[in-house]
């Protein structure tokens, strides 16, 4: 859950960059306009979430999925987003797959490493325990002094 209200804002710097990229070069965007667009974007997220959630609920699913979000875009009459969204998802999925393979490889490497370093880490743990035992005594001494 969001703990502060500003947690529900999107980062201004990123929003500003997206606006600038969308507009012709050299167009100024007033501060008021930037803030308004940022708020509009948050409202858009909530509206899209609510629409997508309706589709999930109709299908008796608890988890929102890609189809729900795409259906929500249609419902909100943002059909123009469908094509770019599908393309981006495709690229994203490929990227995720690549990442998975990389992290899988890293995990395997790590396992090999930890196997060989196992004895070493056990020694370190023991040292840690000894230190822990010493600390309370030190505190008591301090209290006596005070």
């Amino acid at each position: 859950m969001a703990e502060r209200p500003e947690d529900l804002n999107l980062p201004n710097a990123v929003i500003t960059r997206i606006i600038k990229e969308a507009l012709p070069d050299g167009v100024n965007v007033s501060k008021e306009a930037r803030r308004a667009i940022s708020q509009a974007a948050s409202v858009f997220v909530l509206y899209a979430t609510s629409c997508a959630n309706n589709f999930a609920m109709k299908a008796k699913r608890k988890t929102l999925n890609a189809g729900d979000v795409l259906a929500a875009m249609e419902e909100m009459e943002f059909e123009r987003f469908l094509e770019p969204l599908r393309e981006a998802l495709e690229v994203y999925k490929k990227g995720q797959k690549g990442k998975k393979e990389v992290s899988e490889q890293k995990r395997k490497d790590k396992e090999k490493k930890t196997d060989s370093e196992n004895d070493k880490s056990r020694e370190e743990e023991e040292e840690e325990e000894e230190r822990m035992e010493e600390e309370p005594e030190a505190e008591e001494e301090e209290e006596v002094e005070n």
């Binding site: 997206i18 606006i19 965007v29 899209a48 890609a66 943002f78 969204l85």
Partner: peptide
């Protein structure tokens, strides 16, 4: 995927609105 799509859609929305 739904999270990714919503994020991307929000960017498209900001561009479109601006």
């Amino acid at each position: 995927d739904a999270l990714f799509l919503t994020t991307k859609a929000t960017e498209l929305f900001v561009q479109h609105l601006a």
